[in-house]
């Protein structure tokens, strides 16, 4: 770089630029916080859903699955699993409950987490809640 462009100019671009864009990011975040309640399905956020989220977290479900596309890529997307399972929390409960403890020979299988009935219902309710968040029409189809 030529002598016309000095180190102090570079430094000012760094300080000014990063400060400006960080403040812009904060402003956008502030606006986002105002907009999110229109899309986030918070009306459905019951105590049961909150418990379901905790069950989801304390069994590290994100270690295999994606949820709204984020997580691991080893097992199916669950952001829309409620819809994929025919809008049925019972189907979700039955699936989780029915996993064989020793897996399926040669194939990927979900572990048996030995959840209580209350936890099973809660995690299914959480997945129903997640499926009703307005995710800008993502995923593209029912297969997730």
């Amino acid at each position: 770089m030529s002598e016309v462009f000095t180190k102090s100019m570079a430094r000012n671009i760094y300080y000014g630029g990063s400060m400006f864009f960080f403040l812009l990011f904060l402003a956008l975040t502030f606006d986002t916080m105002g907009e999110v309640p229109k899309r986030d399905n918070h009306e459905a956020l019951t105590a049961q859903v909150a418990l379901g989220k905790k069950v989801w977290e304390e069994n590290d479900c994100i270690g295999c699955h994606t949820l709204l596309g984020e997580g691991a890529y080893f097992a199916p997307e669950l952001g829309n699993v409620y819809k994929r399972f025919g809008n049925s929390t019972d189907a979700i409960v039955a699936f989780i409950k029915g996993r064989p403890a020793n897996g399926i020979p040669g194939r990927r299988s979900m572990p048996q987490f030995n959840l209580s009935d209350e936890e099973l219902e809660a995690v299914a309710a959480f997945l129903k809640y997640a499926s009703e968040i307005n995710s800008a029409n993502w995923p593209p189809n029912i297969q997730g």
């Binding site: 994100i62 270690g63 295999c64 399926i104 299988s109």
Partner: peptide, 12 residues
């Protein structure tokens, strides 16, 4: 798919 299962599942 069932390599080391269920001792070390994929998520672990």
């Amino acid at each position: 798919g069932d390599f080391l299962f269920p001792a070390i599942p994929f998520n672990v």
